[in-house]
Design a protein around this nucleic acid. Sequence first.
DNA 1: TTGGATT
Length: 482
Amino acid sequence: MATLTNGQVDAAVHGGAASTNGLVNGISHTHSPASCTTIPMKDHDAIKLFIGQIPRNLDERDLRPLFEEFGKIYELTVLKDRFTGMHKGCAFLTYCARESALKAQTALHEQKTLPGMNRPIQVKPADSESRGDRKLFVGMLNKQQCEDDVRRLFESFGSIEECTILRGPDGNSKGCAFVKYSTHAEAQAAISALHGSQTMPGASSSLVVKFADTDKERTIRRMQQMAGQMGIFNPMALQFGAYGAYAQVQQQAALMASVGQGGYLSPMAAFAAAQMQHMATINGLPGAPMTPTSGGSTPPGITAPTVTSIPSPISVNGFTGLPPPQANGQAPAEAMFTNGIHPYPAQSPTAADPLQQAYAGVQQYAAFPAAYGQISQAFPQPPPIIPQQQREGPEGCNLFIYHLPQEFGDGELMQMFLPFGNVISSKVFVDRATNQSKCFGFVSFDNPGSAQAAIQSMNGFQIGMKRLKVQLKRPKDANRPY
DNA sequence: TTGGATT
């Protein structure tokens, strides 16, 4: 039983207490820790070893002699449980010399079994050594660039062991690559020098150079993809699932949107429905912040006679989930349509008009957030919204939308297109450098009918000074040189 | 101004 407590203190006081430990009898050690006066230096290409199958009663001090015969130890750390501090039966070991690590691995790995263990000791490069902390993911390449082009770009930072362009099934570059250096330091140097350093012709933003995913991250992504295909992680599905009451409101909104004239889905009705849906989700679920663009003036042609009766605590300011900043902290009573969104040409509402129906609907459901307040108490921490993975729908179901308001994010885009069907993904393109929307994006439905309906209604839809352009997304293979 | 991508 090892009774040593603190190696440093012990050694200093007793001058080499390790020899009192029967478990390491017979192994000579050339110096006690206290005699180590020089700060160890390690090789640039030193290998961190994982040591497994260590009896839990052996601490660093007991282990050191066992490994020192292969060379000078730079660092030896027994892994302990983060919370209990309990010895986990394994350790990390780095020798000053790479060669020592290789010798130790050859001599010890599975070669002997330490007292009290049923399996032989493990001595091998730590996971962090073997995999990709020398492997880089490179994004935002020009799709014409080949392996040699990428090599030329990266060769000055170290020796490249591997260089692969990622290609689709048709052999076309996906605009990204993996580059593996012989050392982590070289990879790091390449990141420092090249990440964001330049923008390739035809690339939508500057070069991305980062460490490739670890196996763990890859596994997580795979799981997310699988879950995504089953619709589990769709944020809307989450909302429906967690807040059953939402479903009803959403359905009502969609229904209203569809009861336009003879099944025609007017932009106004669509817009109002989107508003309603949004109302069902405000004050409790995160939404991308949106700054009202026209600070409170009602656009000409839109009269809002019924809006003033909406109770003031309820924010209905368009697609934002946040009330506009107010000096007195109150949401304005005339908030609706005062944020620069001007969805429809001038039109005076009549009783039969979908516009008025929409307004009526808004009033009818304006009380909902109060009810939501109770629900939200049952869910003090709303379930995390897992970032939606981008998913294309089938052919004919994917829309390209241009002239989006700068403030629109994925969520707003989805809100805007929900009335037309089941939105399986929405994506606003963002400039990575500035995090600003590039004012275009994609929406995918699960069927072409919804996509067509959305085009019919939303193409030309005016928001602020701009009109949306809504059309089918170009198929991937369009516009190929050959 | 056409999906920010993965080994």
